[in-house]
Design a protein around this nucleic acid. Structure first.
Lengths: 106, 106
DNA sequence: AAAACATATTAGAAATATCTAATATGAAGG
DNA sequence: CCTTCATATTAGATATTTCTAATATGTTTT
């Protein structure tokens, strides 16, 4: 059990903190895609998506693989995929919880 | 299997996107604490911590329970705790991966 | 009821993140 | 080579988040 540095963890988690990045992650969750496919899927601008991809890569969440003039991006590993799945599971729980307690998320 | 709304998910994930908030979560991971205990543990200002606690509550990650003049904050449920644990597991994986590939996190 | 304590809220300043638009790089095809 | 296509990078404008300092709320203690 390695000791995880707090700053590293924060940087890692930062990857999940923007709508576009979450969309990208979900969009490539099951199979890698080229930048242009991602741009089309989530209807963003090329430059913007490219920047978010760089961010996700920097956070350690995705990897890019060049093939000719295309670059394919996919999740870095299986554990990241499991984490994405877990977000949904946990959120369902939270939502049920919140609904039954009459509290609100904001 | 409920369908999780993207905006709800993004809001939820936003809770993890700041160093102080991650510190708070880790600090109350095993048992709930009062605001002043948290302030002391992570060496922040009362006002600042209070604002981050409000944020975490809004994101659905923690719950507060008043007892006399104290307010105890703890993780909302067990699943959130598992998620925090999973972050460490995934990060270890990523770090090993990154180390062996000679890429960097930034 | 006043004082002391714990926490929350607010406003505005300061710091950071994001987006847009333009340009750069680099590979493939003619 | 020159063009086209896919992607990356940059700079500056804009938007958002965070912090600090001051004040407010609510509870206990005296």
């Amino acid at each position: 059990m390695l000791k995880i540095d707090l700053d590293t963890k924060v940087k890692f988690l930062h990857g999940f903190s923007h709508k576009t990045r979450v969309e990208i992650l979900e969009c490539i969750k099951d199979n890698e895609k080229t930048v242009s496919q991602i741009v089309e899927d989530i209807q963003g601008s090329q430059s913007n998506i490219s920047q978010h991809l760089a961010c996700l890569k920097g956070c350690g969440l995705i990897v890019g693989r060049q093939e000719g003039k295309y670059v394919y991006y996919g999740l870095r590993n299986q554990k990241i995929r499991e984490l994405l799945t877990m977000f949904d599971v946990v959120l369902e729980d939270v939502e049920k919880d919140v609904a039954c307690c009459e509290n609100h998320l904001d």
